[in-house]
Amino acid sequence: MKKDVLFTVPSYFREDMKIMGFRFGKGEKSCVVLGALRGDEVQQLYVCARLVSFLREVERDGGILPGKSVMVVPTAIGHSMNVGTRLWAPENMDINRRFPGDEEGSTTARIAAALFDKLRLYHYGIQLTSFYQPGSFIPHVRMMDTGKQNPDLGCEFGLPYVYVRTPRSYDQTTLNYNWQLAGMQAYSLYAGKTSEIDENAAERTLRAIIRFLNGRGIIRSEYSPGHNSTVITNDDIITVSAGSAGLLRRVKLAGAHVRRGEQLAFIINPLDGSVREVLKTPSTGMLFFVQDGPFISEHSPVFQVLAGHS
């Protein structure tokens, strides 16, 4: 294992922030795995840390195949993680809205440019990312429909679903989108939680990455068989939103199989405990996403149901 400093952000009264990459094997740049780009992506950091630990043992046992190399970057925003801010605090900017970056630009643009420049020659790019709402997903692989995506390869993670999503205008500045435009096979892995560690989801995500690395002939190690993945799109997802606001008491969690009309959650008046709304599923299927904050505002999506899947 080699430790590379991919980029250094000098600081004034704090220590410099070094973005570390852990490199395994020698030869072609086969696969890069990137963890936290936001200061609250603790689960993403944790999965990467576990992966570094695992690959260290694989390398020691000669399991990195000749001519292949893997890079793991657990976090690009350690300073924000240390002080509990989601965004890069000095600029209040989201690094994952700054790609492909600008090496002469602002600090976040420079971080994005350095990451993009150092990692874009890898063949496969795996980003462990978080959703823009607090909540839990069924672990899945996600890629944007740029015309360059390859969902079949995404199936090699062995997760139940490969989600090909139509990009929105703000996606053009994300890492995944720009990796794909640069010719990489880019995947986003949703690893359950964000700001806390979910051991089960972390384990599933870690196994998926190990499965992919074995399947692509990059490492040789023991790995568990995965699912026969199903490729889904936006059209397969039905959103259940809150019609009222209050405390959210969930009855069903991500991964639950639900029948049409089944109760999913109660929205409770936070002052007197009365039930303001009972959320029910409009379709039989699997709960793909569940909002997990204690409060819910009117209109907010609470569940995503994968219709027809069980």
């Binding site: 952000v9 000098p10 004034y12 000095p90 002469e104 630009g105 602002s106 600090t107 420079r110």
Partner: peptide, 8 residues
């Protein structure tokens, strides 16, 4: 204000 490398 406080600045970092790259601050405008």
């Amino acid at each position: 204000s406080a600045v970092y490398p790259g601050t405008l």
